[in-house]
Simulated assay, not measured.
Amino acid sequence: MDVDAFAAEHGPEWHRLRTLLGRPRRKLSAAEVDELVTLYRRAATHLSIVQSRSPDPDLTTMLTRLVLTARAAVTPSPGFRWAVVGRFFTTAFPLEVYRAGRWCLGTGLGFVALSTLLILIVAGDPEVPLRFLTQEEITALVERDFEDYYRSAPAQNFGFAVWTNNAWVSAICLASGVIVLPVLYVLWVNAVNLGLVGGVMVGNDRTDLFLGLLLVHGMLELTCVFVAAGVGLRIGWSWIAPGPLRSRGQAVAAAGRSGLVVALGLVPVLLVSGIVEAFVTPSVLPPVVKLTIGAVAWLAFLGYVAVVGGRARRLGESADVDAPDREAVAPTV
């Protein structure tokens, strides 16, 4: 294809399209709006022809910019709406967590069972922790380091660090879920760390301190990790067993969109967990008060998911993107 001849033939159309795009939409007449749509479609066709027959870089770049600008004018974004944010927290997020409930529960039970087993092993044999820590490190951990950790930085800085770290761990679980193994590795590493520290504390008769500090924030914090890991494993399972009516690509795409909803929704929940860990866990409040605050935050999240997510499920709500934004699927025989 002669690129110069093609540009000379269709240049007036592109120029006219630029002219219409340069004018405010409210000042375009009905006929000019129709012309704008027609020229946009023709420019998109021209771009396809150039890319397939003679991919001239300069012409391709120019037409790409023109088509993208025209598309934005023809199908403008509705802009920010608070109703969308409200629906996200009243429907989309709790619904997706509720739908993945069995995966999250299974992940949580497995993690707790493994951590408990490791704690019992470490606490039951004094030689086991010495394979990972020196006696000096064990003594420091039991006498001061475990408790001092929560006061190792100003509360606001510590809370921000905890929030970002937990968000990072959750993001890893969600993003790598399609591969499955990274999620299991993250869970294993955290279970081993918890088992080792917990075993050392329990084995040295500091069970009350260990549980008294950990449970305050850990109930909500670990639940968020279980949700992220459960949804991540659900994404991985979607390509292993996509079901009889979907291809693997369709199954992973749908599960991935669900994972994105959960990832965004966990951000404020992890923020609450970080605030509790930074300001409540190391506070001078009586242990029963601190545990009550942690339990209330945890039960509030579980109740929110069960009630709001369950209602959305019963009403047949969907957290997926609108149909025009999904991949096109044609029936085949």
Rank of each mutant, 00 (worst) to 15 (best):
R23A: 15
R23Y: 08
P24N: 03
P24L: 04
P24D: 04
P24C: 03
R25V: 14
R25S: 11
R25I: 14
R26P: 12
R26D: 15
K27F: 08
L28M: 09
L28T: 09
S29T: 15
A30E: 15
A31Y: 08
E32A: 14
V33Q: 04
V33S: 14
V33F: 14
V33M: 07
V33C: 09
E35W: 05
L36C: 04
L36N: 06
T38D: 10
T38Q: 14
T38K: 15
T38C: 14
T38H: 13
L39Y: 12
Y40E: 02
Y40R: 07
R42G: 03
R42A: 07
R42H: 15
A43W: 01
A43K: 00
A44G: 14
A44S: 13
A44K: 03
T45I: 04
T45P: 02
L47V: 07
L47T: 03
I49V: 12
Q51P: 03
Q51M: 03
Q51G: 07
S52C: 01
S52V: 05
R53C: 08
R53L: 10
R53M: 11
S54D: 13
S54I: 04
P55M: 04
P55T: 07
P55V: 04
P57L: 05
D58A: 13
D58H: 13
D58V: 10
D58P: 06
L59K: 03
L59N: 01
T60H: 06
T60Y: 09
T60G: 10
T61W: 08
T61K: 08
M62S: 12
M62G: 02
L63E: 00
L63F: 10
T64C: 12
L66E: 04
L66N: 01
L66R: 00
V67G: 07
V67L: 09
L68P: 05
L68E: 14
L68R: 15
L68Y: 13
L68F: 14
T69P: 13
A70H: 12
A70R: 02
R71F: 11
R71A: 15
R71M: 10
R71C: 11
A72Y: 06
A72G: 12
A72K: 07
A73V: 01
V74L: 11
S77D: 15
P78E: 02
F80I: 10
R81M: 06
W82P: 06
W82N: 01
W82M: 09
A83S: 15
V84Y: 11
V84N: 13
V85M: 02
V85K: 04
V85W: 02
G86F: 12
G86D: 02
G86A: 06
G86I: 03
R87E: 08
R87F: 03
R87V: 07
T90M: 14
T90K: 09
T91Y: 12
A92G: 03
A92L: 05
A92Q: 02
F93G: 05
F93D: 00
L95E: 00
L95F: 04
E96I: 00
E96A: 09
V97K: 01
Y98M: 05
Y98R: 13
Y98E: 05
Y98Q: 05
A100Y: 07
R102K: 11
R102V: 08
R102E: 12
W103K: 02
W103D: 09
C104T: 12
L105H: 00
G106W: 00
G106P: 01
L109R: 00
L109V: 08
L109D: 04
G110Y: 00
G110C: 05
G110R: 02
G110M: 01
F111A: 05
F111Q: 00
F111M: 01
V112Y: 10
